[in-house]
């Protein structure tokens, strides 16, 4: 993935009233003079709300909500790999290649994914359905190898199973 900068869409997204209330609740989890602590859950919410990734405008919008300088939000958003700073497809396919999964055959899983989706790691398919990512241990080593698609874990993978799972996606 291009790590150099954030993408600007030119449009500032906005949370709905309902989500703004949710954000108020998030703020309440932290002491009143530590509102900035809420940056991570709010970024997370923003990513969910605004199409699975965070544009520069989304980051600036969050910075404004929390009243912290934009650069401090950029620092957080770039530090954690789970904030996507580039558009992702409808399905964000994240295959674990960390040690347990690797020992149990994540290389084959990855190859199967690349073949099936016809894209490389870090890329998004032309129809914008899939983005393929390589991730570190997701804590499901007992059932390695595994992958995560959006919010769901798929475990004990084989090359066939991978193809089947992808095919079954709506």
């Amino acid at each position: 993935m291009n790590e150099r900068t954030t993408l600007s869409t030119g449009v500032t997204p906005r949370f709905s009233e309902e989500k703004l209330q949710e954000i108020e609740k998030i703020f309440q989890r932290y002491p009143a003079d530590r509102r900035q602590s809420a940056v991570m859950p709010i970024l997370h919410l923003a990513q969910r709300e605004f199409g699975g990734w965070l544009s520069r405008e989304a980051l600036d919008y969050v910075a404004g909500l929390i009243n912290m300088p934009p650069i401090r939000v950029y620092e957080v958003a770039t530090f954690y790999t789970m904030y996507n700073l580039q558009p992702v497809g409808r399905y964000h396919v994240q295959a674990c290649t960390n040690i347990s999964c690797w020992l149990c055959g994540s290389d084959q899983v990855m190859d199967a994914l690349k073949n099936k989706l016809k894209i490389g790691v870090g890329h998004t398919s032309e129809d914008k359905r899939f983005t393929l990512a390589e991730v570190e241990c997701l804590g499901a080593c007992v059932n390695a190898p595994m992958m995560q698609i959006n919010d769901d874990y798929y475990e004990n993978l084989t090359t066939d199973k991978v193809v089947e799972i992808i095919d079954r996606l709506p």
Partner: peptide, 18 residues
């Protein structure tokens, strides 16, 4: 506050990012 450190480890970059 315009200067910061973005990314981490050996990918860390100092600057205003934008």
């Amino acid at each position: 506050e315009q200067m910061g450190a973005v990314y981490r480890g050996d990918h860390m970059q100092v600057g205003p990012f934008v």
